[in-house]
C-alpha cells in the first residue's frame, strides 16, 4: 500500500474520496458482473453447434425483459446520482474543512516548472517544499504564472487546476506526519515531468519552529519581492527547494491580477 497513495491516503479528504471510489465501484459491479455472466452463458448455450436448443429467429422484443434492463441500470444510476450530489457538495474543494484547529492559508503559484508556496500568515515562502502542520485544515489558494497546471498531493486528496489570472481554492488536511509527493497533473510544457514537490506534514510545533527558522535566516534566505519573483518565474526545471525569509504580502494578489488589467 506504501506505493498506492490513492488507496492509502493520509488525510481526511483523501480518505473520503477513496471510500467514495470503493462504494461507486461496488455499485457498478452490480451491473458489470451480470453482463459478464450473461455474455458467457448465453453465448455458450446458444452456440450454433449446440443442437436441440430452442431457436426463435423472430423473437425480437419483450417488454418485460426490456423494461428490466432499462429499470435496473436506472436504479443503480439513481443511487449513484444521489451519492454524486452529496459527495460533490461534501467534498467541494473550495469548501473549508470543519475542524477545531484554525486553518492555515498557503498561496500556491505554479511557475515554469516549479511550485511557489507563500505563507501569508508566517510571511515566508518556499519553492517545491510545502511544510504543513498535521491536523490543521490547509486552505491552498492556487494560481499560476505559467500555462495551466493542476495542483495535486495524491495522499491528501484530489487536485485543482492552477490557472493564470484565476484563483482557485483547495482545502486539504494531513492526519499523519510524513513526506508526501506533490505534483502537477496537467501537462504544462517541456519541464513538466520534474514539476514535483514535497508536502511535508509535521506536528504543529515542528511547523511553527520551521517557519520561525526560515523567517530568521535572513542572511541565507532572500526576501520574496517583485524583482526576486521575476527572477524565480523564469523557466527552470528540477528545482531544489528554495526558501524566502520574508514574502511581500501583496505579491500573490498581484500575480493573480496582473492579467486582469
Amino acid at each position: 500500500m506504501n506505493r498506492f497513495p490513492l488507496l492509502d491516503p493520509k488525510g481526511i479528504i483523501g480518505l473520503d474520496e477513496r471510500n467514495l471510489m470503493i462504494v461507486a465501484a461496488v455499485l457498478m459491479l452490480l451491473v458489470v458482473i451480470p453482463v459478464y455472466i450473461m455474455a458467457f452463458v448465453i453465448a455458450r448455450r446458444y452456440r450454433a453447434g449446440n443442437t436441440g436448443r430452442e431457436y426463435r429467429p423472430d423473437w425480437g422484443s419483450s417488454w418485460r425483459y426490456e423494461l428490466a434492463w432499462w429499470a435496473f441500470p436506472c436504479a443503480v444510476i439513481l443511487v449513484l446520482s444521489i451519492i454524486t450530489w452529496q459527495s460533490s457538495h461534501a467534498l467541494d474543494p473550495s469548501q473549508p474543512i470543519a475542524s477545531p484547529a484554525a486553518p492555515l492559508t498557503i498561496q500556491v503559484v505554479a511557475l515554469d516548472w516549479k511550485w511557489l508556496f507563500i505563507y501569508p500568515q508566517q510571511h515566508i515562502a518556499s519553492v517545491n517544499l510545502a511544510v504543513i502542520p498535521v491536523g490543521t485544515p490547509i486552505d491552498f489558494e492556487i494560481t499560476a504564472d505559467a500555462p495551466m497546471n493542476s495542483f495535486w498531493i495524491p495522499r491528501l486528496g484530489g487536485q485543482i487546476y492552477a490557472m493564470p489570472g484565476m484563483a482557485t481554492h483547495l482545502h486539504l488536511m494531513a492526519d499523519v506526519p510524513g513526506d508526501y509527493r506533490g505534483l502537477s497533473a496537467n501537462f504544462s510544457g517541456a519541464g513538466f515531468s520534474d514539476m514535483t514537490f514535497t508536502a511535508r506534514a509535521e506536528s504543529a510545533g515542528e511547523f511553527t519552529a520551521w517557519a520561525a527558522g526560515i523567517a530568521a535566516a535572513t542572511t541565507t534566505d532572500p526576501a520574496l519581492t517583485a524583482p526576486s519573483f521575476e527572477a524565480l518565474a523564469k523557466p527552470s526545471t528540477a528545482v531544489a527547494p528554495v526558501f524566502y525569509s520574508s514574502a511581500d504580502p501583496a505579491l500573490y494578489n498581484e500575480i493573480v491580477k496582473q492579467y486582469v488589467r
Partner: peptide
C-alpha cells in the same frame, strides 16, 4: 463486451466529481 464494460465502469467512477479529483489526468 469484456473491455467496454470495464472501461464504462472506470468512466462512471470518474463521473463522480469527488472521485475524479483523485483520478483526473492520471
Amino acid at each position: 463486451v469484456a473491455t467496454f464494460t470495464l472501461g464504462g465502469m472506470a468512466g462512471v467512477l470518474m463521473a463522480v466529481p469527488a472521485a475524479d479529483f483523485e483520478l483526473h489526468n492520471s
